[in-house]
Amino acid sequence: MIHFKDVSFAYKEGKWAVRHINFTVNKGEFVSIIGGNGSGKSTIARLSDGLLLPQEGSVFVDEINSRAKKDEFFIKEKVGIVFQNPDNQFVGTTVEEDIAFGLENIGVERVEAKARIEQISSLLGIDKYLHGSPSYLSGGEKQKVAIASVLVMQPDYLVMDEITALLDPVSRKEVLNLVHSIAENKNIGVLYITHITEEVIKSDKVLVLHKGEKIKEGAPAVILQDMKLLRSAGVASLPSVIISEDLRKHGIISASFVDEEDLIGSLCSN
């Protein structure tokens, strides 16, 4: 379990980037954080991996405090993090090399490393690129390599910091689906950070972040229907919700729909 207990963090004194944050991510759970630019999303990502340490409150990973110096590696092995720009997270000159980098750091021997890399790369469908340079892949493929190079370290939790923000909509969907299927199959806890509303639909729970504070936490269906809340957090509402709210106000339908099919179904049945 990743556990944020009343966490506050400031890059500059007196200017809180995040304030009084509380939440948990259990193993096998898919938790999304949604918010606009400057809401503190990336800060939370870095706090959950021990890359930043909170000034107030504590971050625990499986009961270990991220401040405990001797357990620093424990946290980095347990929590894998993927960032927004894949070009700035590659170390190796080939894909294989890059996936191996983390394993070399945590002392995995060659034979095991090789087996793990083969297994992960075929799982993510990037085995055909192993000997090529990551520079020449498309954005979506690059992010798959970045995910593979974290996943190969066999973390229990994955933190995804706006990993689709620079991708086109088609690869965006592909990468998101991939993360969902990995989380399910490997029983990994995911903290998925995004500013794109439709990406949180399939989460177990959603946190809405605004100006460094958690303004709401709940099931996606509840959060996504609250247009006022989303607007104040600077994120878009789903078209299906915009339509159904407008129709509900005029008494044409009685409930709001997150799912397009449900909305169309209810409109076309009567």
Binding site: R46, D49, L51, F73, K76, E77, G80, I81, F83, N88, Q89, V91, E97, A100, F101, G102, L103, E104, N105, I106, G107, V108, E109, R110, A113, K114, S149, V150, M153
Partner: peptide, 18 residues
Amino acid sequence: IAMEARGFVVGKARTKYR
């Protein structure tokens, strides 16, 4: 930052993949 997140520490012994 990405390197640190993947457990890299300057000067720490690493295994060799190649």
